[in-house]
């Protein structure tokens, strides 16, 4: 897959404080790319650099193989975390204004607006002022304004804040739809479950350093612990547990079963594969549950950040 956006060795300092330290990031075309990191890690600064709101002290950023230049703002749609609209301006007028600033002609902007207003069923808001709308409604307008000019690259910083679950889902579907139509999405959030659901690539930034980057499945493979959740029913669960403890490393499991099984997490070591475990288990009793424990993005996030701290 071709990379739509490439950042090479980007460094940014504010005075003596380094916000980004030699960060390189490759964002494949057509991906939904999760940009993760604790508060103050430098995500927003990185996003602002892509938007040419600030500029790196060193390093380069390429969009579509070209060094970033002012014309590129047309190809980028940005929904900042700190966002808002002119309160006393009418919805339609405001959307037209912002679309024109993105380089759309007035008629083209009007056409796109009509499409999106119809799609999100907000057509009758055209002449309302933002201050008359609820926060969730205003967020919808904000979303439309971000995607209106059909940019190649969409950047969403905490896009679901301010939405109720139903509308959050609606927006999630729209993001996926835009990706399917060819847009590349950078997605920055603290809500790990939405990363799990949406992203196919992630990068993790902590204290100005990039700690990891890659395809989500590969990152997970890297972080796999060879741990399996096992539920097994035998004649004597106590004796079986003792037997298992001698052979494998166990830890407390946390899942539900219907019967009276022995529930445990088994950590495989010394070159043991899952098949070895499974054949060992089937000889001892009725296996009702056998699942590999895949690390969640949340686990990966916390582990990486804590490792980095120590």
């Amino acid at each position: 897959m071709r990379d739509l956006l490439v950042a090479e060795n980007v460094t940014k300092r504010f005075g003596d404080f380094t916000v980004l330290n030699n960060v390189s990031i490759h964002i494949p075309e057509g991906s939904i790319y999760g940009l993760l990191g604790p508060n103050g890690a430098g995500k927003t600064t990185f996003i602002r650099i892509i938007n040419q709101i600030t500029y790196p002290d060193s390093g380069s950023v390429l969009l579509d193989g070209e060094t970033l230049k002012p014309e590129h703002v047309r190809n980028i749609g940005y929904l900042p975390e700190e966002r808002g609209l002119y309160k006393s301006m009418k919805v339609g007028e405001q959307a037209l204004y912002l679309a024109q600033l993105k380089g759309l002609s007035k008629s083209e902007a009007r056409k796109q607006l009509r499409y999106w207003f119809e799609r999100l069923e907000i057509g009758d808001w055209w002449n309302k002022k933002i201050q008359e709308l609820s926060k969730g409604m205003a967020q919808k307008i904000q979303f439309v304004v971000t995607v209106l000019h059909r940019p190649k690259l969409l950047i969403f910083d905490e896009p679901f804040s301010g939405f109720d679950p139903i509308n959050a889902n609606r927006i999630k579907d729209e993001i996926l739809h835009l990706r399917d139509q060819g847009a590349t999405v950078i997605f920055s959030t603290h809500r790990m479950e939405s990363v799990e659901e949406l992203c196919d690539h992630i990068a993790l930034i902590n204290k100005s350093d990039k700690l990891l980057e890659g395809k989500l499945s590969e990152v997970k493979r890297q972080y796999r612990t060879n741990t399996y959740e096992v539920g097994i029913e035998s004649e004597d669960n106590k004796r079986l547990e003792k037997e298992l403890k001698e052979k494998f490393q166990l830890s407390k499991a946390n899942f539900k079963t219907l019967g009276n099984e022995l529930k445990t997490n088994i950590h495989l070591q010394n070159g043991h594969g899952p098949n070895d475990l499974l054949s060992f288990l089937t000889n001892r009793g009725q296996v009702s549950h056998f699942v590999e424990l895949i690390p969640s993005v949340n686990d990966i996030f916390i582990r990486t950040v804590e490792n980095n701290r120590s």
């Binding site: 709101i53 900042p80 002119y86 600033l101």
Partner: peptide
Amino acid sequence: IEEKTNRIIEVIISSVK
């Protein structure tokens, strides 16, 4: 100041200088 308190400023300067 209004643009700052409305938080629209970042949206706008992602399009214009």
